[in-house]
Design a protein around this nucleic acid. Sequence first.
DNA 1: TAGCTATTGCAAACCGTTCGCAATTATGAT
DNA 2: ATCATAATTGCGAACGGTTTGCAATAGCTA
Lengths: 125, 125
Amino acid sequence: MKDILAQLKNSGYKLTQPRKKVLDVLLHNHQAMSAQDIHQRIQTVNKASVYRVLKLLQDLGLLNIESINNEKLYCLTKEPHHHVICKKCGYSEEVACTYSFGDFKNFTHVQHQLTLTGLCKKCSK
Amino acid sequence: MKDILAQLKNSGYKLTQPRKKVLDVLLHNHQAMSAQDIHQRIQTVNKASVYRVLKLLQDLGLLNIESINNEKLYCLTKEPHHHVICKKCGYSEEVACTYSFGDFKNFTHVQHQLTLTGLCKKCSK
DNA sequence: TAGCTATTGCAAACCGTTCGCAATTATGAT
DNA sequence: ATCATAATTGCGAACGGTTTGCAATAGCTA
Ligand SMILES: [Mn+2]
Ligand SMILES: [Mn+2]
Ligand SMILES: [Zn+2]
Ligand SMILES: [Zn+2]
């Protein structure tokens, strides 16, 4: 928390309530969360502002983002950074995974995102 | 083409114009395409119908789908089924890739989707 | 060919996300 | 502490991809 806030300040950004609160939610929740999940936890912060804070964190390279069903899921970048996500209820767990691929002739700045979906115990009954 | 149409018929579905046309586009385009891309190629088919055909093909397990920026990209299932996709223009290429992960204790019916994004030659200038 | 049902086209709703703008807040200087 | 300033917020409306309800249509079977 402290270090990320410091990084924000160093980069010239104000330490505002919305930023602190969104960060707090992300830090204390070890699941992949949607913007709306986050907003639900801090209804005192406007939804548009939640999106703006997330955009900022993304620009600073602090977020791992995966796209499921036209909804983005966010979590702070740290290893391991893969999740299995329940298609029905959104419950997620971290997953250890290794992969490799060849060189890219025609692309630069390549990033990867492995997305695993399934049914959690509850939802598969 | 013939075999997929046969599979549709065997499953009790009619061989309609929208279904044939969407299939034709998917077969002749070796890129990951959005529903709107597909619709653009066959404007004679209503956009809602394009979505319905895609839903049907997905249910039959014939599609590989990846989600980028709140837009889904579709291609017919066949190996290799991974793409690098240009963030700017949407141009995509197939990619060979290997990966492995551990067992899933708390999840069933797990599917995976590896998404690679970057900048194509044109867009990186 | 006629009749029945699945499927389509259309327009409106939906849902996550973005945007413009006026009101507010954090910050550094006085 | 107070002030001035620009950055940031809240709000509501727009946006873009996708889905849905329903009446019209087209494919199949007899
Ligand atoms: Mn995580
Ligand atoms: Mn493909
Ligand atoms: Zn679940
Ligand atoms: Zn490109």
